[in-house]
Amino acid sequence: MKFLHTADWHLGKVVHGYPMIAEQKMALQQLLHIIDCEQPDAVVVAGDLYDRAIPPLEAVDLLHETFQAINLERGIPLLAITGNHDSRERVSFGEAWYRSQHLYLNGTGLPSQPVILNNTAFHLVPYMEPSVVRQAFSTEEPLDHHGAMEQIIEEIRKNYWNEAKHHVFVGHAFIRGGTPSESERMLALGGAEYVGSDLFAPFTYTALGHLHHPYAISAERIGYSGSLLKYSFQEAQQPKGVWLIDIEEDGHVQRSFRPLHPERDVRILRGSLDELLQAGQSEPTDDFLKIELTDKGALLDPMQKIRVVYPNVLQMERVSLQQTGGSVHLSAYDQATKSPVDLFQQFYEEVSQDEYEKEDESLVKQTFERILAGGELE
């Protein structure tokens, strides 16, 4: 059984005010090319098809076009679930007649009959809040995400475990020990969102969505596909792509990563304003950038200057200020007893992390003398 494992498309995503729909369309075109090259038996999408419950029209159109290209035009079975970003009711509209075309989309239901392909049973389990699972199973005790998943898997084992040779679990969860990214929405507070990996021991393979790093967890039979694109600067160093999963006759699982390469990358550039301007003039780029400025002095409108050479700057930070937390701590005693020049020196050294030069001290002293005397600054 050979299938492609993907997830976390987040269609309609906006990153720092920039709509990513054009980049998402290009990435999905690359996915179709991978499908044409690999000829998988099925394509799995493990949740977060959209970025929000009510997606923009262009995101809905893109999902429909992609599903049609995979399922109708290429005739490849498509198995998908909803994630915590999706509206389960909206996405699963038409679920009953989707199945007649081998498009299996579980958005609202608890475990049901699995999808059987090539003697492999796919158990499609959408993201559900523990309170929903508790109500469905009439459980009196409170459930966290681990307890809810335990209930679901017990139900699968009891009522929906058939004679298929291999069993694949498709879900959307945060496995304990996984590596998160800042663009993922929290499922719960504290440790209540975590699910133990031991619950998935009965399955030949577990194909998950939610965490955006394709190597978010190190496990032979459990994997995250990662997100379609880089959706935060914390993901700047992460590879993006899909996994080709090949389950051999004896149950051995072969996993191989197929990368996606967007036209515009998401990167972080660090340096002084002058250094970055020079680099941008010699090597222009329209990548999505976060600029980390190392300058220690005052800068006049650095964003306007930097965008002349880097048109797609989405975020800018002053690293020297950030390292100190951007704040200075002066006690009431300091403020009452120290001269303005001494207070400014303390402020300067805490913010810049540099020693106060004698030339600076003389200039500051002259400036304060003029201010206190009511004179004008030059």
Rank of each mutant, 00 (worst) to 15 (best):
S320K: 06
I371N: 11
I247S: 07
A164E: 05
P114T: 01
G325Q: 01
A336N: 13
Q39A: 13
N312I: 07
V44F: 03
Y356T: 13
H102E: 11
S339F: 07
P126N: 09
K296Q: 13
G12P: 04
Y310E: 06
G374Y: 10
Y104Q: 01
V45A: 03
I306Y: 02
E140W: 07
H212D: 08
A336K: 12
A373T: 04
I306C: 10
A332G: 09
K296E: 01
R52F: 09
F233K: 05
F344T: 01
Y104D: 02
D198G: 10
H85I: 08
T204A: 08
A188G: 13
A136L: 06
E129N: 15
L293K: 04
P142A: 00
V341P: 06
D198W: 09
Y310N: 06
D274S: 14
H33N: 15
Q335I: 15
Q322E: 09
K338W: 10
F93K: 11
F257M: 09
I21S: 03
E357T: 13
S138E: 11
I268A: 01
D51F: 05
F200H: 00
L372M: 12
E355N: 15
K2G: 07
E141H: 14
Q322F: 06
E317R: 14
A236R: 09
F257K: 15
P214D: 00
V14F: 05
Y231Q: 09
M149I: 02
M316W: 08
G190S: 09
G171S: 02
L314M: 10
Y160L: 11
Y18L: 12
V242I: 15
L189Q: 12
F203D: 04
Q24D: 00
F169Y: 09
S282T: 13
R264L: 05
E163C: 00
D144Q: 01
A164D: 03
L31R: 02
E350W: 00
E376R: 13
R90H: 07
L228R: 04
M303H: 14
T294A: 01
R258S: 02
F169E: 09
G75R: 09
F137L: 05
S272W: 01
V309L: 08
S327L: 14
V132C: 13
E129Y: 11
Y98I: 07
L273Q: 15
Q151L: 10
Q234Y: 04
Y310S: 00
I35L: 05
I268V: 14
I116H: 08
T367I: 11
